[in-house]
């Protein structure tokens, strides 16, 4: 196959997931220039290997590459900082008063992004993949390389924590 055909095939393969790839990169590296670098590097890597791709979900495959590239960048940039530890099991959230839903309704996008930024990366990414990209548990498990049970427990902790950040923060209440 010529490079011409191959690159067109790759465009068709990757284009539907390009925006999701950039959003995940932004979630993981938190700085636009780095996110763009991660994206470009991920596309290049994906291009080199997509002929060998044989899985079910091109999106999960592409996003797992974005995640690996992001982590490589982290290790390079933040060698001195300890990596984000796997969050320890927290107490189950209290039953939510209905007021919480109303407080959430009153939050805006800037508050959501600020609250997301305060979460550990492992919580941030699982929320973005599930709630924004609407990935299935199976896809998330493939992207993160963890069992589905871990996806479920991480997601429930991440939701509880984000709610706490949004509702518990006095700045988000007005």
């Amino acid at each position: 196959m010529s490079v011409e055909d191959e690159s067109r095939d790759f465009e068709r393969f990757a284009r539907p997931h390009a925006a999701a790839a950039l959003r995940l990169a932004r979630t993981l590296v938190r700085n636009e220039a780095d996110a763009q670098d991660v994206l470009q590097d991920s596309f290049l890597r994906a291009f080199r290997h997509f002929r060998g791709f044989s899985g079910d979900s091109p999106r999960a495959w592409l996003l797992s590459i974005v995640r690996n590239v992001s982590f490589t960048l982290w290790r390079k940039r933040e060698r001195n900082e300890p990596g984000e530890p796997e969050p320890t099991l927290e107490a189950e959230p209290d039953p939510a008063p209905s007021a919480e839903a109303q407080l959430l309704e009153a939050s805006d996008a800037a508050q959501v992004h600020a609250a997301l930024d305060r979460l550990p990366g492992l919580h941030r990414e699982v929320l973005v993949l599930r709630e924004m990209e609407e990935c299935s548990y199976r896809e998330i498990a493939d992207i993160l390389g963890v069992p589905i049970g871990t996806v479920m427990s991480r997601l429930s902790r991440a939701r509880a924590q984000l709610i706490k950040e949004l509702v518990g923060d006095p700045r988000s209440k007005n």
Binding site: E11, A14, R15, A18, A19, A21, L22, R23, Q36, F43
Partner: peptide, 8 residues
């Protein structure tokens, strides 16, 4: 993320 497609 319209820039994503341009990057591709």
């Amino acid at each position: 993320a319209p820039e994503a497609e341009s990057a591709l």
